[in-house]
Simulated scan of single mutants.
Amino acid sequence: MNWLTNLVRPKIRNLVPKKDVPENLWVKCPSCEHMLFRKDVEKSSMVCSRCGHHMRLPARKRLEMLFDGGNYTEIQLPVPAPDPLKFKDLKKYPDRLKDAQTKTGEKDALIVAHGWLAGMPVVVAAFNFDFMGGSMGVAVGEGLVQAAEVAVQQRAALIVIPASGGARMQEGILSLMQMARSTVAVQRVREARLPYIVLLTDPTTGGVTASFAMLGDVTLSEPGAVIGFAGARVIENTIRQKLPEGFQRAEYLRDHGMVDLVVHRKDIKSTIARIISIMTHRDAPSELAPAYLSTVEETDSPLPLPPPGDPEAAARADGRPADPSDEVSEDDEGPEDPTQHGDK
């Protein structure tokens, strides 16, 4: 039977050359776990056609979606010291930075750009979660400061799109300092009477949530985004209680007053354009106005606003939205029984 070993096995040729077979033809939805054709998912801006789950997007893709024609001018950010604390865990911090830069092709977790959105000037600061979890270090803090400065110089709206696990632990206290720096930067935009809009995406947690991410004049969120400070499991173990259904999800925060609107990805540009138009009294193209914002009453001239930094005057400002039930006529002496309206 040794003659069998002398036989030459026939070669089976692939019908399609290997080099012509594209990789990653399919995408698995993290929510419903359905396999989706990648080209179809990309056409829908990475939204699952089965369950509507919003998958994560890289920062540059978000910039292309927001700016008119996908055109924008990137603001070059200074590069800080790569390893200020000489930090090392399983790997040296400079090595982790190099790995993230190779993986994403970006210098750090934030990209800042300026351009036009629906014909209105805007500055956008977008986080890239693929870069070390979108963590905020000195470079990211400097980027947020410069984004605010450019917005003030150009009299443009500032839009921030966080996607972050929080402060970057490899930079220690220097990272935590960026919470204060970013908060001060936002205040400068407010003092200049310019719109500051935040679009919360999945996930927005830690020191990012505890600083600039929750300070927007208008706070939007994508559906299903995880938003919070500490993780749900950490909170449950701390308070020894079961958390409510949907806790730290965008819809839960909207229902409890922490988020203004939960917006589908396809409507984000039109929604932001409409908000900026209302806040700045500029005309945005009518086709960019979603139905649920078209009923907002607009005026030809801005409301008389008090000087910045005076909350007491803001509460007394003419034109301030008020509850009609708060209006009391001069002839109204109130109920005879003081317990009729109030706690007994």
Rank of each mutant, 00 (worst) to 15 (best):
G309S: 12
D95V: 10
A163K: 08
A126I: 00
V138P: 01
L117R: 09
G119T: 07
T295H: 13
V152T: 08
C29M: 04
Y292V: 12
K91E: 14
Q154I: 07
E333V: 05
R168K: 15
L63V: 06
R240Y: 02
L4C: 06
K39S: 03
E327V: 15
K28M: 11
D217M: 03
V234P: 04
V160A: 11
V189R: 03
A232G: 08
V112R: 00
D283F: 10
P308F: 09
E287Q: 10
L63I: 09
P302E: 05
S221I: 04
L200D: 00
I278N: 04
V262I: 05
R188N: 14
G231R: 00
F37C: 06
G206M: 07
T295P: 01
A139M: 15
F129M: 06
I12H: 12
K269I: 09
L90R: 08
Q146P: 00
E287G: 05
R181E: 10
E33N: 14
V160L: 02
Y292W: 10
G115S: 06
P244K: 10
L176N: 09
W26S: 11
K344W: 14
S221Y: 11
V198R: 00
T205S: 12
I268H: 01
I276Q: 05
A167T: 14
L174P: 03
V259D: 00
L25D: 07
P121F: 13
W116Y: 10
H281L: 12
A284R: 12
L215E: 15
A313V: 09
M279V: 08
Q101R: 15
E245F: 06
I239N: 07
V226S: 13
D83Q: 03
Q170N: 13
R181N: 13
N14E: 14
E287A: 05
S211T: 12
S44H: 06
M120N: 08
L63A: 09
R265C: 05
R96K: 13
N237V: 09
A163M: 08
E327W: 13
A147I: 02
R249Y: 03
S31H: 11
T271N: 02
L25A: 06
K39V: 06
V124M: 02
A250H: 08
Y196G: 01
H281S: 02
V79P: 01
R254Y: 04
P244T: 12
G105R: 07
G257C: 06
F67Y: 03
T102Q: 15
D332E: 14
